[in-house]
């Protein structure tokens, strides 16, 4: 039998374990960091709103730029269409005038102008 002097009735056993030096102090500091509510500055509090505002501003500027481009291209297209339509109209009128005008009509016109 292995002899021992443990007094199990008294219940005052010696703790045979140890810890690294300064362990409990470090543990308390670690826990304090984990359980202390972080103070949030006004600048940090409005940070999400600043991001949202920046996104909205970029969207508005991009939208305005795209809209502007679209309007310009529409204007150019209209102008171009008008120019094409006018020249086509003139061609048709000229064609009609030339085709419907004979030499007698020209002579009559000149005589009338001279008079």
């Amino acid at each position: 039998m292995m002899e021992h002097n443990f007094d199990f009735d008294r219940g005052s056993g010696k703790n045979p374990f140890g810890v690294p030096e300064g362990y409990f102090d470090d543990f308390c500091k670690r826990m304090e960091t984990m359980t202390t509510p972080k103070r949030i500055s006004l600048l940090q509090r409005v940070k999400p709103y600043r991001y949202a505002a920046a996104v909205i501003a970029v969207a508005v500027i991009t939208g305005a730029f795209l809209l502007n481009n679209y309007n310009d291209s529409q204007k150019l297209q209209t102008q171009h269409s008008r120019t094409v339509a006018t020249s086509e109209y003139n061609d048709v009128i000229n064609k009609i005038l030339i085709e419907d005008t004979n030499d007698d009509m020209i002579v009559d016109y000149i005589i009338a102008e001279v008079d």
Binding site: F24, T36, P37
Partner: peptide, 22 residues
């Protein structure tokens, strides 16, 4: 609350640690 809890951790971390460690 937070300060009181830190004090409780200070007071109980040792006995609770030994309780777990054993």
């Amino acid at each position: 609350r937070s300060r009181a809890f830190s004090k409780i951790v200070e007071m109980l971390s040792k006995p609770v640690y030994w309780h777990i460690r054993k």
